[in-house]
Amino acid sequence: MSAAGPLDRWYESAGVRTGVRRMFHEGAEQGLVFFPEALVPHLGHEAVRALDPERRRELTVRHLYQFLLATTHLETRVVNRAAEPIANGRTPLALTAALRQDAFKVYCDEGYHALYSLDLADQIAGVTGIAIPDWDYGGFVEQLAAAARRLLPDQPQLAGLLQAVVFETLITAVLNELPTDATVVRPVRDLMRDHAKDEGRHHRFFATFFHELWAGLTPELRRRAALALPELIHAALSWDLAPVEDSLRLAGLDTAAARDVLADCYAPTAGADRISEISRSTLRLCASVGAFDLPGVREAFASRGLYEVDGGP
């Protein structure tokens, strides 16, 4: 008998099969925040602390909008773009029917995650009167795509599959930061908890798939893929700064002040400890296939603060 797979009970446990619609009622959420203030890097900047409380509240709401709407793009344009060829057997790999069916389950889940992320953002905007700005929330996806083109220009499918593996093995740690934070409005916590449950299963699916993918690569492609991974990890954990700048300007900062805030709060070294912590599981996955044993790979990860050459990931 084969070992149980992470999506074997999908029909009984997936959010799209068993979940409820999360509803926002402002009256029940008085005194709570929309996004953990510790996870909004610019809230601690002196120029932002000087704003009146209502402007700061709007900043957290727009940060939540950016998180939710970027999710709709990531799930449909990054993860599902990888899940579809896996599901339909359009990769060079000889995958089992069970793995391909699991990829279709992931595909269904991600569409549902995109739907309820957009739904909650629309609900909050309607109740609070804080409009969802007409921004391009897919800029984050474009950042990922640009990194992939630069790192693996002649291997677009491999780059897309690696992007999905990286994102899906990072996202659970990100989502798990919110559900237990009692300062955050309940529908946001509940939605993040719902999402994290599905993504925990997706993490295991993509970890299994990554081993299959790695085994099918030539030695040269393994090294190139391994060298691309630290940049893909960083790209997946970086905010798209255009909406952040616009949000700061809507809060009352002029362009120069907004850009000073970005320079101080989103510098390349900012949040290094958090990135290292969130990526720990992804680094263990890389280690499990021997990626760090390939020439130059430890150094590439170390240059991004993701590997201590003498101590490991």
Rank of each mutant, 00 (worst) to 15 (best):
A145I: 08
G139I: 11
L144F: 13
P133E: 05
D134A: 08
L115A: 13
Q143C: 09
E110P: 05
K105F: 13
Y116P: 02
E110L: 07
Q143F: 12
C108D: 15
Q123V: 00
A145K: 14
T128Q: 00
V106N: 13
Y137E: 06
L118T: 04
L115Y: 14
C108L: 14
G126A: 10
C108Q: 15
A131W: 02
D119I: 03
L118K: 05
G126I: 05
A145S: 14
C108W: 15
I124E: 00
V106Y: 08
V106M: 08
A114W: 02
I132T: 03
H113Q: 03
A131S: 09
I124G: 00
Y107L: 09
A121V: 02
I130T: 14
D109V: 14
Q143D: 08
Y116F: 10
Q123S: 04
W135N: 15
E142H: 13
C108G: 15
F140L: 11
D109A: 11
Y137N: 05
V127N: 05
I132N: 02
A145F: 14
G139L: 08
Y112K: 05
G138A: 09
G139M: 11
G111S: 07
S117Q: 06
V127I: 08
Q143E: 10
Y107W: 12
Q123R: 07
W135K: 14
I124F: 02
L120G: 00
T128M: 02
Q123E: 09
Y112R: 07
L120E: 00
C108F: 14
D136Q: 08
A145W: 15
A131K: 11
Y137H: 12
I130A: 07
Q123L: 02
G129Y: 03
V141P: 08
G129M: 05
S117D: 06
D109P: 06
C108A: 15
D119R: 06
G126H: 09
F140V: 03
D136R: 12
V141A: 13
A131D: 10
A125C: 06
C108Y: 15
V141H: 13
L144A: 14
E110D: 12
G126V: 01
